[in-house]
Design a binder for these strands. Structure first.
Lengths: 328, 328
DNA sequence: TAGGCTCTTGTAAGCGCTTACACCAGACCC
DNA sequence: GGGTCTGGTGTAAGCGCTTACAAGAGCCTA
């Protein structure tokens, strides 16, 4: 019984007599033989693994995306390498290293600059982006942040008659936030209004708190704060409370992401739910298409869902209405 | 210039003239040469990667552990493969597959049965356990759940005079919960009381809700619910509310893990904070010791911290006292 | 029955590294 | 000046698979 036959049986190739196959299978069982993934990879020149590069893992967003991705990967019998960049200096170097260990890479927002992504593309590495715009021919998966931002802003503008909304968040820090800001501004424009400049801040609760404190201390106090994510919104609610303002009576607050905590704020948070798992799963499918050689892998965008609770001024505090933002 | 020299330069071995080294480095730079991790691994018979097996990624606990682990791994220039078992049938098979792609494995609670772990140990695979008891000579990293359970229960028993406490959670489902239940029971014993049987339920909010509903509907209503984790505790608070009971006036509720949401319940949750990142980092160090051949890698247990807020009956609802559970 | 098929199995040449060992200069000693 | 070291460099044999190709067995057709 030769090594080639074993290899053929192992990989379920045709051209092996059932009898021999049985024999080989028995031997494998008895010897508890496990093929070396390293040797196999070297000979067949693929790793049987893909990588995912994410900025961090605080909050449920990235964890959920990874979960959606992981499901698809495991279903294909592949492995998954992860790398959190955590705004490390050497992130690009780490990614370049990672790329040597996988057949393809999912690169998420706020991890490495575009030129690193471009370099990967030039080297022929299959790459899919998530939560950031496409780069050259490299496809991206995103949720419709722009559309949901328009939708949410119009809800505030027309549904509640707000006229002094302020956007909290820094569009330059993340493509998602940029899209949300763009939608916010666009909704204003469509309504014949001008959106005030965003109050810049980073992503965490404390950042939102500080930014909201600044915004709410302006002489012309905003009547609503549209925050770039739920964490900032939570901070903003805290800031309002600290200033003796009631949410939503004195100031409306909205977020993004619908993290579990959103339902537990004193005034249940109106927010936008993202199809996090589906984003991850879609990215995986796209990446495997790319690895499989399909060159027609196109960017995709997934619908989001407006979750209307109490903090926007809609009165009920427990149940929540959901509205899907239709494809455009 | 021979291939061996390049290899030597690459790996920073001594015995290369500075001049040659410079030459090789230049060539590497110019040709943008990257060594094949596959070939290198095959020849040197190690993967330069470790794996982590976790049950799921909902809630911040596992994400934080992974983060702590990841930091150590990346600092060593190694890669990290992840596998979520999600109570899949084929989990053991997947783990056995994963093990062929790494130099060592961190196996967390509720993923694969002990005999799989034992089998790995027998095959000489470096394995570290987390959140589950040691198996044979395989070391485990754990937080002092037992001790903090005693501490928490005594706080309730002696600090607040409770006499009808009920434990919510199923000790058979997770080693952590088992330890907590054991501490709960032990504290009762020390106080000359008998702990009532635990109200069995799974880990999620809804499970805690149902279990608490059952417990609180008993003729002799408990005056306090000690829940196996924060999610269950949140469910329990909901159940109390639904029954028209106030927390903590009518019933005290406590959790475990100190998830972010714990601070946002109507009555801020008294809970136990775990050193999640440190757990992950410690496990990584232990695993690398093991891989490095050190056979004196011992199980470790890390201190936890009792976070006293309002839901146990201590009145203040915003600041929180922390008490570290000292090593025993 | 010889020639040509098809189908199964075996052989051996890589895949791109690491590493034991051979080799070759010099430096050094007597 | 020939021998012995020493340390830098090259050679080649793996590592454990995949895979092109060769070889052999069985069957059909003329």
């Amino acid at each position: 019984m030769s090594i080639a036959t074993v290899s053929r049986v192992q990989r379920g190739l045709h051209g092996v007599t059932p009898a021999t196959r049985e024999l080989v299978l028995d031997a494998i069982e008895n010897l508890r033989y496990r093929p070396s993934s390293l040797a196999r990879g070297l000979a067949s020149r693929h790793h049987g693994a893909t990588g995912i590069v994410f900025p961090d893992l605080s909050g449920p967003y990235y964890a959920d995306v990874i979960l959606g991705y992981e499901g698809e990967v495991v279903a294909r019998g592949e492995s998954l390498l992860i790398l959190g960049t955590h705004e490390r200096e050497e992130s690009s170097e780490l990614v370049l290293d990672l790329v040597g260990r996988v057949d393809g890479l999912l690169v998420m927002a706020r991890t490495v600059p575009d030129d690193v992504v471009r370099a990967l593309g030039r080297d022929g590495v299959p790459v899919v982006l998530l939560g950031r715009p496409p780069v050259g021919r490299i496809p991206a998966v995103r949720e419709r942040s722009f559309e949901s931002a328009v939708h949410l802003t119009e809800h505030l503008l027309h549904g509640h008659g707000h006229r002094r909304l302020v956007f909290i968040g820094d569009p330059s820090l993340s493509p998602d936030v940029a899209e949300r800001w763009r939608g916010f501004a666009d909704a204003h424009r469509r309504a014949g209004l001008e959106a005030p400049a965003p109050v810049l801040c980073r992503f965490r609760e404390a950042d939102g708190h500080d930014a909201a404190l600044r915004a709410l201390s302006e002489p012309a106090r905003p009547s609503g704060l549209v925050c770039g994510n739920d964490e900032m919104a939570i901070g903003a609610c805290g800031a309002a409370e600290r200033l003796g303002l009631r949410v939503p009576a004195d100031v409306a607050v909205t977020g993004w992401d619908d993290i579990p905590l959103a339902r537990f704020l004193p005034s249940h948070l109106t927010t936008v739910r993202q199809p996090t798992r589906e984003l991850g799963a879609t990215a995986a499918r796209l990446l495997f298409d790319l690895i499989g050689g399909s060159s027609l892998a196109e960017s995709e965008s997934l619908p989001t869902e407006l979750v209307v609770r109490a903090s926007c001024g809609c009165t009920r505090n427990d149940d929540s209405r959901h509205q899907e933002v239709a494809p455009t």
